[in-house]
Design a protein around this nucleic acid. Structure first.
Lengths: 343, 343
DNA sequence: TATTAGCACTCGATGTGTCTGAGTGCTAAC
DNA sequence: GTTAGCACTCAGACACATCGAGTGCTAATA
């Protein structure tokens, strides 16, 4: 059997209708709804075929049909025409009162959740293989020394250290020069044991301070490589009763709260390069088991400075794919601009 | 009518039982459960009295009794004997793999949620009226200038600025001296327009850099005064069906996700000085309307350096008050020590 | 006078049977 | 190939009976 044009039309009508209502779709509905001018009986025959082809199914005998994962997949891949959205509105919402990067990302997640009624996640931009850009020691007060470490992508790490006695100005100067000559431009791999030993020797009585700084550097670089995930609108998931019983939904919310598993999801997105960076996981395709009744749409955004991050939307399988995809496309395109304005 | 000893015993038995089961408690249960050796009929008479006194109520005719807010209140104020808890276990959980303050706080919230099965919130320590401790400018690369601002409680703020040309070493030195002489030890109120003008004048061609720095200072101090709230275990709330229908619970979860309203709660706690900093809100007493079916227990912790923060637990009214209160008491006592070890 | 046994009563929860309507598959006619 | 029509299925709504936990009240008891 083949999926001819009429079958496609009917399938599309079934899915669209189901997306709107969340109820199984019957033959009569399709017969009236589409411009095919076919009776419900004909539709029924076609529907039986579509079911055999695996695109739709009945939740129980004598109910209408709902799309299977394969049906959604076909819909997303072949039938979807993108929608123009209320992006403008969202942009204005975003431009209000945001200062730091962190709050901006949180805000993005929030606005997105608010506008779509799904759960959203946003990661901060990651910089692969960050390099050291600048290090500076300074004396904060008699007993405290501050190390400022700047890494690629302007991730800044501060480390406070206790010292027994205040350092002289020229001592600090010497240490600063030492640090920057050896370490500027180095990545984590470049800093080997030999280098560490040499520097410790040269630092003389301040070897333990060096030790501390190295630790700080490791942390800073790690931090730059580590993903921070912001989620929002997780409670939206409670609005879709078809996601199964309360227990399942709870597990889903827990996964979202816990970040556990989310990392895996992010990793998968960021390492697959798609045409436009948009990826759609439907049902069982999701890399996280607790989301097997959901669909996930992720998009990668890219900053001019080389940072890459992910925006994702998690919702029921009957999510408004058109809207979600085009919103994400727009947003990832805009993010670089927005960041520039704000930082 | 008076609340004699026997009535108290019965009330206590009712509440304890209800805490365990979550079901309305009948007279027969109490008659068997307690060591009073009274028949169910007698208990019924007493229960009628207790109901008249406002400590218990029937959810419907011919159901057992459940405690009212007033009943819980009495229980918390007068009848509760603290429980020794599995604090040791919790402490060991906390000591694993925690580095930064932020992750420590998140971890505290998480461990607490895991151990109690309620929702938890933790705020970072706040420092009232923070003062400037130290400022330093440095040249990161040709076009970027970094201002490091350290505030009381060692809150550190970094601000990157673009500059047209690299500054000479002595120019930077001059600016650093200028900044520290004027601003060290100053609080936000101390920095007035006059001061700003004087400094700008002295800075000469770098007046706009000064402008930037002032903004950074304002942000830093603000940030030190601003509360960051970490929540965890919010999904635990779904485990208590008596919290009302799904919609109510959703509203509750939204409030927890949104931080909206939580600030109010925190404010109220931190400004009321109780004997041991523990505060219990039952039902309608809560300052957040969406939590009117819950109980909230909050505790204030205090660091040696003067910072103050809040830990809170949100659960159903039938929460295990004994356990919660003693856990919180222990934890707030320990937090200072834990922080010292970790920072 | 305080306690208890006993009884009638209430009311949510549970279970059962019936009805309805949406939807199907199949067959025969167009 | 399409359609009308019909018998059939099944979830959900509804009415109704039953059950049992729990109550309040009264009269008997210690």
């Amino acid at each position: 059997m083949e999926l001819d044009e009429r079958k496609q039309k009917i399938l599309k009508a079934i899915i669209s209708n189901y997306l709107e209502t969340g109820e199984p779709v019957g033959s009569r509905t399709i017969s009236k709804y589409t411009d095919l001018n076919l009776s419900s009986a004909t539709i029924r025959n076609e529907m039986a075929d579509l079911e055999e082809l695996g695109y739709i199914m009945q939740p129980h005998t004598s109910a209408g049909r709902i799309p299977t994962d394969a049906g959604y997949r076909l819909y997303v891949d072949r039938m979807m025409v993108e929608k123009d959205t209320e992006m403008e509105e969202m942009k204005t919402q975003l431009l209000e009162r945001v200062d730091k990067m962190e709050s901006l990302l949180k805000q993005v997640a929030k606005v997105l959740a608010y506008n779509t009624n799904y759960a959203t996640l946003v990661t901060a931009p990651q910089y692969q293989n960050s390099k050291l850009k600048f290090i500076q020691l300074s004396q904060v007060d008699e007993h405290q020394l501050l190390a400022v470490i700047v890494v690629d992508g302007n991730v800044i790490k501060n480390k406070l250290m206790e010292v027994n006695r205040p350092l002289e100005n020229d001592e600090i100067l010497k240490l600063n020069v030492l640090l920057n000559t050896f370490l500027q431009g180095a990545s984590l791999q470049d800093i080997n044991l030999e280098m560490i030993q040499t520097m410790k020797n040269q630092a003389g009585e301040f070897a333990d301070i060096m030790e501390n700084i190295f630790q700080g550097i490791a942390e800073a670089i790690h931090e730059a490589d580590e993903v921070e995930i912001y989620t929002s609108g997780t409670t939206n998931m409670l609005k879709y009763p078809e996601l199964g019983n309360l227990e399942q939904t709870t597990r889903l919310l827990e996964a979202l709260e816990d970040r556990q598993g989310l990392n895996e999801l992010i990793d998968e997105t960021i390492h697959s390069d798609n045409a436009n960076g948009i990826q759609v996981y439907i049902g069982e395709e999701a890399p996280v088991s607790s989301m097997k009744d959901c669909s996930i749409v992720t998009a990668t955004y890219e900053l001019a400075e080389g940072g890459k991050g992910t925006i994702g939307i998690i919702g029921p399988k009957r999510m408004d794919y058109k809207k979600v995809v085009s919103t994400l496309k727009n947003l990832t395109g805009e993010l670089d601009t927005i960041f520039k304005k704000k930082e």
